[in-house]
Design a protein around this nucleic acid. Sequence first.
DNA 1: TAGCACGTGTGGTCAGACCACAGGAGGGAG
DNA 2: CTCCCTCCTGTGGTCTGACCACACGTGCTA
Lengths: 261, 261
Amino acid sequence: MGAATSDAPRAWRTVLEHIEQQLLDGALRPGDRLPGERALSAELGVGRSSAREALRVLEVLGLIRTAAGSGPNSGAIIIATPGGGMSALMRLQVAASGFPVADIVRTRLILESSVAGDLADAAPAADLSAADLLLDAMDSPDLAPTEFLALDAAFHLALAEASGNQVITATMAGLRSGIEGYALEGVSAIADWSATSTRLRTEHRGIVEAIRAADAATARSRTHDHISGYYAETFPPSSPSGPSAPTATPSPASTTPESPA
Amino acid sequence: MGAATSDAPRAWRTVLEHIEQQLLDGALRPGDRLPGERALSAELGVGRSSAREALRVLEVLGLIRTAAGSGPNSGAIIIATPGGGMSALMRLQVAASGFPVADIVRTRLILESSVAGDLADAAPAADLSAADLLLDAMDSPDLAPTEFLALDAAFHLALAEASGNQVITATMAGLRSGIEGYALEGVSAIADWSATSTRLRTEHRGIVEAIRAADAATARSRTHDHISGYYAETFPPSSPSGPSAPTATPSPASTTPESPA
DNA sequence: TAGCACGTGTGGTCAGACCACAGGAGGGAG
DNA sequence: CTCCCTCCTGTGGTCTGACCACACGTGCTA
């Protein structure tokens, strides 16, 4: 042995597909332990290194968690944490120029505006306590920009989580990771951080307020303006991010009032 | 050697971070060739298998393309094809129950409605020729459901591409992949395929028509209804996809006419 | 009975060896 | 001089075997 017999597909792909199939069949469920690497490779007739390559992919994608040692917590365990995989994907794609930053911002605009609107419309009012906590934490007067930004990201994510849509939550986590580097850089472009953070805090509360008031249109437009405003300030005029400006995206409810009056 | 000295982070992660850093620094750009696996591992002081694990991750994430042999086309080459990675991620997350199908559909609703609206509002009218071609192809009377569905997916993707937002395009490709299996299964749940496909064709043309007429609100609502309608038909009442029905999401412009009259 | 030492299995990593393949360099035939 | 064929080289792809660090369980010991 030692080589691919030409007609066979890549060995690691075999492993990946095998596990995917078992997941689809229900033979493998979240919380379950995968066979050990040695067993898995023997079972599928591939080398351990090939099996490991597949497991590595699953790990980065957020499907499994691995731990050495013995006992029930060791080995590869199925977990579905899409956020991690999404973050890695977005981050690397941005690094490789596959995702223009402007497109990420535009996508945030769409997703978050929609989330805010849905939250306001939610029949049984969504639980915003997590967001409230973050809002309070952000009021600490002596927060470094980095800390503030982390709380800010967590706040936006908390809204997504409150909406209950796991796909959007994971996507937003990924989008945020993708532009995290730029966000940190951007802080230096802000003239008066104190004023900016105060404004951001006010806008955050305004969004939550609109959601609580079940005013979807306002929640949407405030979210849109909040995000586009921040990026307009962070990425001054000639940001080499892409051909068009992030704020160019017409939001579903930004300039269109359609107020509930 | 042969083992991790406990304090060191995982070797493959070292490789991954090294490459990411080079991408961020601009030392590595799309189209460039990575060092060979042997050189890379030597350079970073890790084993070749560890370097390979990192490369495998990059490959699945759509960042590199690998080819054996020699010459300029061999080796690992930086490519930024987010769609592939996104598809793998979504597909596996769905398989692992990390992404409820209902959430994926809801996300499609948001993204595609928004795309259709933006397309209609686009200052220089977007190029819809690719979508037109697919529309014509879908008119072939003797298309198998599978073929029709493939064209249908391509049509929706073409609209996203026309919008020029690469993040949305890749995300939509991923979302589609995630529910592809369910879509194929769902065909059998459709009583009169001929009638359904005719309806879908009509709806598609209606969407494009609204976009061409620069009627954003109609484009949005038609897109929303098109998608939610299809899934309502494909996943009859008691689909075990999630706690709430996909159509429960209030679209920005679905039931709210705000017609241009 | 309480505590500790050892065995065992797991992931993590490395080193070395082949294979298949694609391309280029070189020599030989025309 | 030109063209074609052959061999060589480098690349990814894979397998095997080995060792390390670690966490757990078992069972012996005090």
